[in-house]
Design a protein around this nucleic acid. Structure first.
Lengths: 144, 144
DNA sequence: ATTATTTTAATTTTGCACAATTAAATTGTG
DNA sequence: CACAATTTAATTGTGCAAAATTAAAATAAT
């Protein structure tokens, strides 16, 4: 097997599939007027309400160079607030605003909608998730 | 199970892992002075030597808005040529130059280097590849 | 306490991604 | 042939990603 052949490259498939799945999300998220990375930020904020940029980045594996402009766009839309932590002025704390909380209702049906676009048996789903988790964990040891 | 929880999102794991693996490639490709998407273009060109932008995009699932500037950068480095097809002036044909061909020697050891960074059994590897292939095929039916 | 180190987010720069539009050339139709 | 429809790559504009630098503030060391 020629490992330099495109078809044999696991990473290429991962990269291509990741973009394809995000493309499936795109028209669905367009109804909420948000992008996929913005949706990920909201998934976290719907769970915790308030979080620093640093902690948000740790959960999404994204750095401030990516998050800061993204969060500013969400701030301009009135979805969240950005403010310095009083106790540690180096940190910026993100807080969900009512408009952002309201989006949760419209998002509730997204997982189901997506499931109907991508047919994947329960067993295969769990298996794939497990393998992705395992690889992700393997590549995440070095940065605390 | 709350399907709106970040940890339960298959797509997020796919997206995060894809970026993580590309991050593993980054220092390795830096030695060749190319990026990961540029490496993918070269993988195709090492196979076929010459190809139109359209066909290249079909193989990589990328459009001309992404490829045109990327190919211009590789052209400036002397790695490839871009020229209109004589027989159909709408098409642009990409041709590998000697400098690009030479890079193949330095790239030969990349799959092995990567394999040492990511430990994945032969069985799990084949299984994962199969699942990614299957999902990719499922999401690629609609565009010829 | 003073100074050095570390932590943190912003800023800057480069390079993808992709939607939408434009422009040019080919193909299809009458 | 003429002319509309289609195909194609380039262009334009917006939004990520991530490395490198900067600046500010907290923490640690002496």
């Amino acid at each position: 097997m020629d490992k330099l052949q495109l078809d044999n490259q696991l990473c290429f498939k991962l990269y291509a599939l990741s973009r394809k799945v995000i493309a499936v999300y795109r028209p669905i998220l367009e109804a909420l007027d948000i992008t996929y990375p913005q949706y990920l930020v909201l998934l976290v904020l719907w769970e915790v309400k308030s979080i620093t940029v640093k902690d948000l980045g740790a959960r999404l594996y994204l750095d401030s160079g990516t998050l800061t402009p993204l969060l500013k766009r969400l701030e301009q839309k009135g979805i969240l607030d950005r403010q310095r932590d009083m106790e540690d002025e180096r940190s910026v704390v993100i807080t969900l605003k009512p408009a952002g909380k309201d989006l949760l209702q419209n998002a509730k049906k997204i997982p189901e909608t997506l499931g109907s676009c991508i047919s994947l048996g329960q067993k295969e789903y769990q298996q794939l998730k497990g393998q992705l988790d395992s690889l992700l964990a393997q590549l995440t040891i070095d940065q605390s």
